[in-house]
Write a protein that binds this DNA or RNA. Structure first.
Lengths: 253, 253
DNA sequence: CGTTATTTGTGCGTATGTATT
DNA sequence: AAATACATACGCACAAATAAC
């Protein structure tokens, strides 16, 4: 249990932002309570106000707090949850930054007509691996990854995908090293679904519990599907966030 | 129409970051080309190096560039990196194409501390309207829209938002006619939640049924929240889809 | 109603360290 | 070794928004 004491290692502004993040997740500032002021933290940590500002800027960029001039700093709604911005394919690949993986069922060849057809396979055989992803030791998502037979074959020996393996990688990052054409597109579809018995058992919730189901179909430059990932997220620990921006018109000179 | 020349210019660092963003989108720095150095931009815009740094910090937070000490700043697009490319706000506004709206509870002033604080209101009063959206006569989503008091006041008389009204509009489109600054951003947060009794009754499902809950917080150009929409979707009739793509440098003519 | 204190926002200057070339 | 470029950190001044009086 290393929940409280962590490496002081790192720049001062990261020490400050990490402490604040931890306090926020612990619920210390929920319910509209104002966070300490810049001057306050500047005194407490014996750093300059600019250093505290830098820490707050990062928290704002992460979307977990907002600030109002003259009033103070406040936690955003659902700021206490495990909240991550998944706005780009790169984010999906780097999901591993502060989560760990725990392979429930290693990569193996299986027959699955449904996923095979979604991968546009002519046969009904795919390679499948099932894993959980944990944040601070708590599993929050169960993912089943299906790969086309020819692609999955190259990964069959990978120790990262064996039953019981633990790591911080993502399958998609592992996969891209074996692809002739890089991944161009990820089509996601998100819905709600009750937890099956298997999901409930592996994630420690009640069967029938409302889950966030996310299907991602990755395709390469030629439009060939190369991976289908079906994930069940615990809504208590994960919220899917997307930001839409209005496109700025730009005129050629 | 002020399409040609942009920005009455906010803070200096936003002027710099906006220009850089525009150049990046235009493909000026694609292919591993180094962006101008801090000293370079500092001279060009006649601002301090710290101001340039602040501009770059924002771009890093947005994930569109990365920086390496000693080497420089580069766009996150070449070399297997990806840019955020999601849907558009226009898509949300045109949601009405083949659906109809059915106002359950007309726009009225109510006290709601939670939504008021999410709209960054100082008081606990907001204007609220509740409606269903139907597709082929079947309701598939129940939405509660919260507006800040000053903005909602302008819409109080609108017949489209009276209890029992029927139409095909979206509140956000109606709203934008009364805003000084256009809507620039919509932050969405998606999770799963069991249907409450009210939701179940209005959408014709069982209480406790897993629902897709989508919160959308629309903000204008100055970052002010102008509408908070909380929707409960029936997962049987609605799936949220997002496609992430690798940034394309140019389109065929 | 203005005044004042508080709090965040912007902008700049300086110094020093670290990574890369 | 030296020059370049980014990273961290501190300091200051003033502006703008907010809240309390």
């Amino acid at each position: 249990m290393n929940g409280a004491q962590r490496e002081p290692a790192g720049p001062a502004y990261q020490v400050v932002s990490s402490e604040l993040r931890a306090d926020i997740v612990a619920g210390k500032y929920s319910g509209g309570v104002r966070l300490p002021t810049e001057a306050d933290l500047s005194d407490r940590y014996s750093v300059s106000r600019q250093t505290v500002r830098r820490a707050f800027l990062d928290l704002v960029a992460e979307g977990i707090v907002y600030r109002v001039a003259g009033r103070g700093t406040f936690v955003n709604e659902s700021g206490g949850r495990y909240l991550r911005q998944l706005g780009s394919i790169e984010d999906l690949m780097n999901l591993s930054s502060d989560t760990t993986v725990d392979v429930v069922s290693g990569l193996a060849r299986r027959t699955d007509i449904d996923s095979a057809s979604r991968l546009r396979q002519t046969t009904d055989a795919v390679h499948t691996v099932v894993f959980r992803r944990l944040h601070e030791g708590i599993p929050f998502v169960l993912t089943t990854v299906h790969l086309p037979e020819d692609i999955g074959r190259h990964l069959l020996g990978a120790p990262e995908l064996a039953t019981g393996a633990v790591g911080t990688h993502t399958v998609i990052a592992l996969l891209e090293r074996h692809l002739s054409s890089p991944i161009e597109e990820a089509a996601q579809s998100i819905t709600a679904q009750p937890a099956t018995d298997e999901v409930a058992a592996l994630l420690g919730c009640a069967a029938g519990h409302p889950m966030l189901r996310v299907d991602r179909l990755y395709s390469d430059g030629e439009g060939r599907p190369v991976e289908l990932a079906v994930s069940y997220f615990l809504p208590e620990h994960y919220t899917y966030r997307v930001t839409l921006r209005r496109q700025r018109s730009r005129l050629p000179p």
